[in-house]
Simulated scan of single mutants.
Amino acid sequence: MSHIIARGRELFPGVIACAVAAAAATFLSQYYGAPVMLFALMLGMAMNFLSGEEPCKFGIDFTSRQLLRWGVALLGLRITLDQVVALGWQPVLVVGVSLVLTIGLSMVVAKLMGFNILFGLLSGGATAICGASAALALSAALPPHPLKERATLFTVVGVSALSTFTMIFYPMLARALGLDTQTAGTFLGATIHDVAQVVGAGYSMSQEIGDTATLVKLMRVACLVPVILFAVTFTRATGRVGDGPRPPLLPWFAVGFAVLVAINSTGWLPKPISQAGSSLSTWFLVASMAGIGMKTQLRELVTVGLKPVVLMVGETAFLACLALGLLRWSA
């Protein structure tokens, strides 16, 4: 018992600092309508001095690592299998093919551009699945690397900025192309990176488009488990596990995500509980993003150069073109 109390005292200052930054980021996001992850990152980086001080150091590290994993696991409470089945075969085809090709091409191009191939997996996964949440989940599953946190931060910044841009531009594109309600909702849900931006774009067009876009997006979120499994298997098979212990074939938080999807799909879980779990997931992810920001300095992001920006913009453009092509072909 005394050990638990001592551990709590050790973590408390840093956890509270991350919680304050998360609360401020949430308020700013609601007030200005911008991505909450981006605000959390910016506020965290402004509080970077705390990560080097003994009272907050351990709590910040705990929040950026352990709470991140709990946040990813609780994402499972947002999805049911019935939601996926109700969409029909066309969105499943678009999401499945887009996911495989976007991540695969990102890894190849990243390697050709001189990056670690795992950066292509990280950025491609964030683009193809669910933006900042996917970037954090994949980062947690990948082995330790001196540049991993910087790559994660850059991916979160890039995918958040691109998600905001696509939220504004893609509805105009859908109207210009004359897409019907089902096709427009599928396109928005299959291409915009973050869940909040999908919701904003979809419901800005119509209720029906917003409903379809949200369900398609949640289908992409459900792809977290197989992609995490692929990421861990790939790093083990290619000897990229680093100097630390080999990661488990399927991390516990990915198992938790799958279990919660299954439980939520039964309908036995009261709606208030699933909603509370989903909200708690958001809080954990925002707080962990603030913690990651506190552990990084701005000058580390400035030194990344132009090539990673080109890679992420290219991934986003490729995903949009591929989704439109698949929708036209399967119509």
Rank of each mutant, 00 (worst) to 15 (best):
T102W: 01
E315G: 02
A222Y: 09
R246H: 13
S278C: 06
G210R: 11
V36C: 09
A161V: 10
N116E: 10
I292P: 05
A176N: 11
L224A: 13
G8E: 07
T282G: 12
L162Y: 01
P226K: 02
L67K: 03
T303H: 10
A262F: 12
I129H: 13
T181E: 15
P146H: 06
A231L: 11
L229E: 01
A151Y: 07
F58C: 09
T183V: 10
M47T: 05
A290I: 05
A25D: 10
M107A: 09
V85E: 12
A262W: 14
G76H: 02
G96Y: 01
T152P: 05
K148Y: 02
F62N: 07
D211W: 00
A22T: 07
M172T: 13
V199M: 13
T127S: 05
H193Q: 10
A196T: 14
V95I: 08
I60E: 08
R65I: 06
L81C: 12
A222D: 09
Q197L: 02
G8M: 03
A137C: 11
A134Y: 02
M113G: 03
V302M: 05
V84G: 06
A110P: 00
G124N: 00
A254N: 07
A86H: 07
S274A: 15
K148I: 06
I16S: 13
T164L: 12
K57S: 14
Q197I: 05
A258Y: 07
F119M: 08
V313D: 03
A331L: 03
S106W: 01
F253L: 15
S278G: 13
L188M: 15
S2A: 15
V227P: 00
S2V: 14
A237R: 09
L41T: 01
